[in-house]
């Protein structure tokens, strides 16, 4: 099963973390992920740079900031192919961000035949 691992950070806690160690840990984590056929993902700019769009009855609202105002913000993601949910949890534990935020594990929807991509 393919899992999307959503990284939610407390942006302040992350900024306070020892940066050199953090990114060194991340480099090692990405290397391990690649070796295991995972897909190292994407880091997002901070939520302060987000813009939110919604349309209702032909009326378009464009707002500054993220859609959900929470202490921990979506900060990025990666993918793992795991045989069991426990394996996915093991990858979440290894991710350095699990020490500064939360990793949300979501199975990816695989369409019945072909289509999505």
């Amino acid at each position: 099963m393919r899992y999307m691992m959503l990284i939610h950070h407390d942006e302040a806690a992350l900024a306070a973390a020892p940066q050199q160690q953090l990114w060194q840990d991340y480099a090692a984590f990405n290397e391990a992920l690649t070796k295991a056929n995972g897909e190292s993902g994407i880091r997002l700019e901070p939520s302060s740079k987000a813009t939110t769009v919604r349309m209702r009855m032909d009326n378009t609202e464009v707002l500054d900031g993220p859609h959900i105002d929470a202490k921990e913000q979506l900060a990025g993601y990666f993918f793992v192919d795991a045989e069991t949910p426990e394996d996915a949890v093991a990858w979440a534990k290894r991710c350095p961000s699990s020490r500064y935020g939360s990793i949300e594990i979501r199975p990816v929807y695989i369409p019945p035949a072909g289509g999505w991509k």
Binding site: M4, S98, R99, G101, I105, V108
Partner: peptide, 16 residues
Amino acid sequence: GERLRPTSAATSVRVR
């Protein structure tokens, strides 16, 4: 791009 399965299938992990 991906579509995700509903949040009822989600699990959250943090290490403290």
